[in-house]
C-alpha cells in the first residue's frame, strides 16, 4: 500500500469553557490513504466534527489542540505537522482549501446568501492559483459541470437560495475541490438532504474520488452511509476512539460493545412489523460530567464493575489494522 497522505497521531482538542474543560477530541489516531475513504462514525457530540476542524485548524475559541500530531504529506514528498502550525499562518491558509477541502453538513447556511455561487467559487479558485478573473470564471463553470449541475454557465450567477438543497451541496463540493486538494473532508454531507439526493451526492463523491484519487474523510452518524462508502472505519465515543478497522471487519466482526450497539440500531428491511428498533440504553453524558474510566460504561451491556469504571482501557490489536479499546479484550 502507498504511504498515507495524512496521519493523525494521538490528537487531543479541548475546549476551555468557564464551567470546565470539554475534552471534545481525546486521543484519536488514524491514517488516511489516497483513493480511499475513511469513515468516522459516532453519535452527536462525540468529537467527529471537531476532529475535522482540528485538521484544518479552524477550531473555534475556546477550543484548541492540546497535544498530538497531524502529519500531512505534501505534493513534493515533504511532511508537515499541522498541529504545530499557527492557525493564521500563510502556510495553513494554502493548505486550507488548497490541499484539504471541506464540505459541511448544512448546505442551506454554508453558502453566503449575499454573493453568487460563482463569486464564492471564483474567490476560492483565485486564492489558490494565479488565474485571471476570466479564466477563474471559466474554471468555476467547469467545476459546476463537474459536480453535475445542469446549465452551469447560467447557474454560476445564481444565488444559493435559488438552488435546491441537493444542488447547494453540489456547489459546496465544487467549492471544496476548487483548488484541487488531495484530501476531501465531508462532515455529514448528506444529513440535511432527502434520501434520493443523499444517494446522488454519495455517488458524486465516489466518482470524484475515483477520478482524482482523492483521500476522503467521511464523517457521519449513519452506519448505512459508512457501509456504502468507507474503506476503513473509526468509531468514536465522547472524543475517544473505541474501535477502528476495515469496513468489512467492523460490520461483520465488531468487537467493542458500542460498535455492536450501533450496528444493532440500524433499521432492517427484514424486521417484522411492530418489532421495536434496538436502541442504545441511556443517553450521551453531559460533556462536563464524563464518566470515569471507560466513558461508555454506564450504557454498556457488558459493563464489568470495578474495571470499566476505574481505568480507560488501552487499545488492543485484534487483527492486522483492527483494534479496539475495551477491557473485554485486555490480555
Amino acid at each position: 500500500m502507498v504511504d498515507p497522505i495524512l496521519q493523525v497521531r494521538d490528537l487531543h482538542t479541548h475546549f476551555f469553557a468557564d464551567e470546565g474543560v470539554v475534552r471534545a477530541v481525546d486521543g484519536t489516531s488514524f491514517d488516511l490513504y489516497p483513493g480511499r475513504t475513511l469513515g468516522i462514525v459516532g453519535e452527536s457530540g462525540c468529537g467527529k466534527s471537531v476532529t475535522a476542524r482540528s485538521i484544518l485548524r479552524i477550531v473555534e475559541r475556546p477550543g484548541r489542540i492540546v497535544s498530538g500530531q497531524i502529519l500531512l504529506r505534501r505534493g513534493d514528498g515533504s511532511q508537515i505537522d499541522l498541529a504545530a502550525q499557527s492557525p493564521d499562518s500563510a502556510e495553513m491558509r494554502t493548505i486550507r482549501g488548497g490541499e484539504i477541502g471541506l464540505v459541511f453538513q448544512e448546505p442551506m447556511s454554508s453558502l453566503s446568501a449575499f454573493h453568487t455561487v460563482g463569486n464564492q467559487i471564483i474567490e476560492a479558485v483565485r486564492l489558490h492559483s494565479k488565474l485571471s478573473k476570466k479564466a477563474a470564471r471559466d474554471r468555476a463553470i467547469e467545476l459546476l459541470a463537474m459536480v453535475g449541475i445542469p446549465r452551469p454557465a447560467q447557474r454560476v450567477d445564481a444565488y444559493s437560495f435559488e438552488l435546491s438543497g441537493g444542488l447547494r451541496q453540489r456547489v459546496m463540493i465544487a467549492l471544496a475541490l476548487a483548488a484541487e486538494p488531495g484530501i476531501l473532508i465531508a462532515d455529514e454531507p448528506t444529513t440535511a438532504l432527502d434520501v434520493t439526493t443523499q444517494a446522488q451526492i454519495l455517488d458524486l463523491i465516489r466518482r470524484l474520488q475515483q477520478e482524482r484519487q482523492l483521500a476522503v474523510i467521511l464523517i457521519t452518524h449513519d452506519m448505512g452511509v459508512i457501509a456504502e462508502m468507507a474503506d476503513d472505519v473509526v468509531v468514536m465515543y465522547l472524543g475517544k476512539e473505541v474501535e477502528k478497522g476495515p469496513v468489512d471487519t467492523i460490520f461483520h466482526a465488531p468487537r467493542h460493545p458500542y460498535t455492536r450497539s450501533l450496528l444493532r440500531s440500524i433499521p432492517s428491511v427484514l424486521a417484522r412489523p411492530r418489532d421495536r428498533l434496538a436502541t442504545i440504553a441511556g443517553s450521551i453524558p453531559h460533556p462536563f460530567a464524563r464518566p470515569k474510566g471507560c466513558p461508555f460504561h454506564p450504557r454498556c451491556p457488558d459493563f464489568m464493575p470495578g474495571t470499566c469504571d476505574r481505568d480507560f482501557p488501552k487499545e488492543v490489536a485484534i487483527a492486522d489494522r483492527h483494534s479496539t479499546a475495551c477491557h473485554l479484550y485486555a490480555s
Binding site: E60, G97, F104, E106, H115, E123, L127, L175, A176, A178
Partner: peptide
C-alpha cells in the same frame, strides 16, 4: 456563528477577508 463563516475560513481566506466579506456584509 453561522456555518458560511466557517466554510469561508475552510477555503483558506485570510481572516480579515472572511470577516469583512461575509458576516459584516450580512
Amino acid at each position: 456563528r453561522r456555518p458560511y463563516v466557517m466554510t469561508a475560513r475552510a477555503r483558506g481566506l485570510p481572516e480579515y477577508r472572511v470577516i469583512l466579506k461575509y458576516p459584516v456584509r450580512a
